[in-house]
């Protein structure tokens, strides 16, 4: 009964152009490195030391402005434990940027970055933007991974690197902005390349209407 009545209801889609681009970002890394805290600091600009553990996947939206463009960031926050790998790797493919997080006070989380990189290689789209994020840099007395070690690993894998602290807020905004800027640059250069082709696909590419950024899917 209810199905007949419901089938005519149109699906609502945000009609206004509230943003120019929609980018999907993903946070990965071992359990307890502070992924949820980083996202919370970025989205709410505050720190919560007692976050409950993320089960499966969490989600936040934050709009930022870069070079006059309003960019809606859809950030997916994943559970770190091995058990959730099958659930979380499903999100890799749609991601345009991936932030790999480790904890400077835990050697194991740093060593595991190599495994996380393998996961990206296996499951993410080719050429996805990556940023190695060292969290908890405020805890100097407990630090076991130096900034140089982090830098070296990043260089070795040809990715960008940043140290930050969700607790003090240091560099957190910077990390997400840097990621957004890189995705934007890549996106725009592809867009203009396609525009140079002079064909029809241009309009669709920058259409912000699609909530999932589906139209961007092909290019990223």
């Amino acid at each position: 009964m209810s199905s007949a009545a419901g089938s005519s209801t149109p699906t609502s889609i945000a009609a206004q152009k509230a943003y120019d681009y929609l980018f999907k970002l993903l946070l990965i890394g071992d359990s307890g490195v502070g992924k949820t805290c980083l996202l919370f600091r970025f989205a709410e600009n505050s720190f919560n030391p007692t976050f409950i553990s993320t089960i499966g996947i969490d989600f936040k939206i934050q709009t930022v402005e870069i070079d006059g463009k309003r960019i809606k960031l859809q950030v997916w926050d994943t559970a770190g434990q091995e058990r959730f790998r099958t659930i979380t790797t499903a999100y890799y493919r749609g991601a345009m940027g991936i932030l790999l997080v480790y904890d400077v006070t835990s050697k194991k989380t740093f060593e595991n970055i190599t495994n996380w990189l393998k996961n990206i290689e296996e499951h993410a789209a080719e050429g996805v933007e990556q940023l190695l994020v060292a969290n908890k840099c405020d805890q100097e007395d407990k630090r076991v991974i130096s900034e140089e070690q982090g830098q070296l690993l990043a260089v070795h894998h040809g990715i960008d690197f940043i140290e930050c602290s969700a607790m003090t807020g240091e560099n957190v905004r910077e990390a997400f902005y840097r990621m957004a800027r890189r995705v934007k640059t890549k996106h725009e250069s592809k867009e203009s390349a396609q525009r140079a082709d002079g064909s029809k696909s241009v309009k669709i590419l920058s259409d912000p209407g699609s909530p999932l950024g589906k139209s961007l899917g092909n290019c990223c």
């Binding site: 209810s2 199905s3 009545a5 419901g6 089938s7 209801t9």
Partner: peptide
């Protein structure tokens, strides 16, 4: 889907 088709569809 069976009990609330509209929500399922959304």
């Amino acid at each position: 889907k069976k009990h609330d088709y509209s929500v399922w569809q959304v």
